[in-house]
Design a protein around this nucleic acid. Structure first.
Lengths: 205, 205
DNA sequence: CAGGCTTCAGACCGAACGTTCTACCCGCTA
DNA sequence: TAGCGGGTAGAACGTTCGGTCTGAAGCCTG
């Protein structure tokens, strides 16, 4: 009872309203303008928070950055998990994932893949931000490999890598060229890839 | 005579030894560590040049950056022009270009595409650096489109865009994953693309 | 030899960087 | 009511940022 009500309140205030404002503001700015290019001053100004509050919730700017990427990872993961759950066959799931990616590229404020952009700014392999990036990419590749294997066991690794390569190319170019053409090229590529991969080992079951 | 000898000397000293040292040093550092992450101080220190000398040759750091990208563009252009000149058919030229890209990805210090990395740091479309990037990419796409059209007129635009997408993906991922696997995936993709595109409109001549 | 480049050496500028600090206020729970 | 944690406000830390300026060497050409 008391637990119930306090929990509702607590789940709203424990991640601290100010902290949430800080994180969402920083995420938007980092994604739109880059990471090294924006300073703590601007983030706290736009989040309407004082410096002391910032450093109460994040030990350093770098920690904010990895939290930002972690948040993006969660959203990506959610979208892809949903796409998989909503489709009966693995092939349809793969096409649905491509649709999700395509929709993202067409979205107005699209500025590429948050992870690829961050990788350009954090080349040091030992840096926590860089490790976050490769962890996310490994998860994505593994997820696709599993789906490809359900379509056809043979060379599912190669097919998944191929998918990732098309995605990376589309995400990288999506804000440097006509997004509609990029999306068109990307989806044609994925469709062809899934079709050809599906013809492999046709009687698998 | 006097012209001849002075020309030899002039072509060595007119681009100014210090300026050249500055540019090549900056290029290495920018490519390896990013652009916003390195300051003028470090560049002049590693180039063994004073600040005054720096600002004698480059009005600002931004100018250095566009000069750096211009240099990379020249090198890319040279490599691709050579690949085209060395191959009799357009299809072979395309495969040779893919080989060049693959060799670049396998090179030890590979850190992705200088232009894609720069794009992550300069999102402002009006910025000179960003415009340099899209100009380079437009040249690359046009070059590939011409080659694809020589293989088969039909949907050569789509085929060229597909090639660029694979390249972008390979370049972006080449320093975030096993380069050998990336190169393998990339080259398989290009081979398939060129083969399928070549089967289109088989009797073109 | 004189004149004109280039480079060197280094001080200096204001601004912004990431970070820490003190001091006070407010609303909650004990 | 007392205390405590999260918040505000703002000064200050030392460093680095991109960029300017002065002044004196060196060096080739006229």
């Amino acid at each position: 009872m008391t637990r119930g009500t306090t929990d509702t309140r607590a789940s709203e205030s424990r991640p601290s309203e100010a902290r949430q404002r800080l994180l969402s503001t920083a995420s938007q700015i980092f994604y739109a303008d880059g990471i090294h290019a924006v300073g703590v001053d601007r983030i706290i100004a736009e989040a309407k928070v004082t410096r002391a509050t910032f450093y109460r919730h994040f030990p350093s700017k770098d920690d904010l950055v990895v939290t930002y990427l972690r948040e993006v990872h969660q959203m990506d993961r959610g979208a892809i998990t949903a796409a998989i759950a909503a489709n009966a066959t693995a092939a349809d799931a793969l096409l649905a994932i491509a649709d999700t990616i395509a929709a993202g590229i067409k979205r107005p404020g699209f500025r590429g893949c948050a992870f690829l952009n961050a990788a350009a700014e954090f080349p040091d392999v030992d840096h926590p931000v860089h490790q976050q990036i490769i962890a996310h990419r490994q998860w994505f590749l593994d997820t696709l490999t599993t789906l490809m294997a359900q379509v056809a066991e043979d060379s599912s690794d190669a097919a998944a890598r191929h998918f990732v390569m098309l995605r990376d190319g589309a995400m990288a170019a999506g804000c440097l060229f006509n997004p509609d053409l990029i999306v068109d090229t990307f989806q044609r590529g994925v469709e062809g890839l899934v079709r050809i991969h599906g013809q492999r080992q046709p009687a698998e079951r």
